[in-house]
């Protein structure tokens, strides 16, 4: 395995893109869990499929199309949530399906043989090129910097949006900025786990870290570390067993989350029992 990482450029690219995507996931995953935007993030991810299809139809890089669609979809969901009297879950599900449907139609309209879209749907971390790596690198740096720069504003916004508004904080700006950051993170994940599986890597590391870390800062740091462990172990297993990398990473993430959840429950019970014992004495 070490030999593969040292000698094959595709393994080095895969490792690097896994690290970058895990960093973006750690920063945004914690926020979307606290703000309860998981389903909205799923919607944004699936809308991006329309952009992949459009990319093929127009002959441009599909991931650029995915980025444009994800950004437009994210801001569109935010706008419709603000303006529409229809429930936000209805808006999300309609745009979710519309994005996927457009992707299918655009690909059907593309001349020539239909392209293989499985790497966009389910990810293929081993197929990441140098340019793809740089692209994910830029997205990750933007996500990190924007979260870091406005960190105190995010904290107030996430805890109590209404109070932030009363203090004069630009809540609307933060709301749309957060949706745009979710779109960037989702696109960064497409190469790693794909559109369909992206939700697991967005939420599993953050959910695992929330079991053990109390502060927002620690939750982000732990989520970045845990995300890296999930993607690295998934990469190794998928290489060794010659299996789909995205699926392996997601299965490992989900299993580890439930294992961590079980460990946490046991630790809590032991703590409660020792506390009760101490009280009796």
């Amino acid at each position: 395995m070490i030999h593969a990482f040292l000698n094959y450029a595709f393994m080095q690219n895969a490792l690097a893109v896994g690290v970058l995507a895990s960093v973006a996931c750690g920063f945004i995953g914690v926020i979307i869990i606290e703000k309860k935007l998981v389903m909205m993030s799923g919607g944004i991810a699936h809308i991006s499929y329309g952009g992949v299809g459009l990319g093929y139809l127009l002959g441009i890089e599909p991931i650029i199309g995915a980025l444009i669609f994800a950004l437009a979809g994210a801001l569109g969901i935010g706008y419709l949530k603000d303006k529409s009297k229809t429930g936000v879950d209805v808006v999300i599900s309609l745009l979710w399906s519309a994005g996927m449907a457009l992707g299918v139609l655009f690909v059907a309209l593309t001349p020539g043989y239909p392209p293989d879209l499985s790497s966009y749907l389910f990810g293929n971390i081993l197929a990441v090129t140098k340019s793809g790596l740089y692209f994910v690198g830029v997205l990750t740096v933007v996500v990190m910097v924007v979260v870091w720069v406005f960190f105190e504003n995010w904290k107030s916004y996430l805890f109590d949006e209404e109070f932030s508004l009363i203090r004069g904080v630009w809540v609307k700006f933060l709301r749309y900025l957060l949706l745009a950051l979710i779109a960037l993170t989702v696109v960064a994940l497409i190469r790693v786990v794909g559109i369909i599986l992206s939700l697991a890597l967005l939420t599993a590391p953050a959910a695992t870290s929330s079991l053990f870390a109390k502060s927002l800062e620690k939750r982000i740091i732990y989520a970045v570390i845990i995300g890296n462990i999930y993607s690295f172990s998934g990469l190794c297993v998928s290489y060794a067993l010659d299996m789909s990398s995205g699926a392996v990473i997601v299965v490992i993430s989900v299993l580890c989350y439930f294992a961590a959840f079980g460990v946490k429950k046991v630790l809590d019970k032991i703590k409660a029992a020792s506390f009760a014992g101490g009280s009796k004495v």
């Binding site: 720069v149 406005f150 105190e152 504003n153 904290k155 107030s156 805890f159 109590d160 109070f163 932030s164 203090r167 004069g168 904080v169 630009w170 700006f173 933060l174």
Partner: peptide, 11 residues
């Protein structure tokens, strides 16, 4: 957070 000022404050 009661001291936050109007707008958004980088860093």
């Amino acid at each position: 957070t009661g001291f936050l000022q109007k707008g958004v404050s980088p860093f």
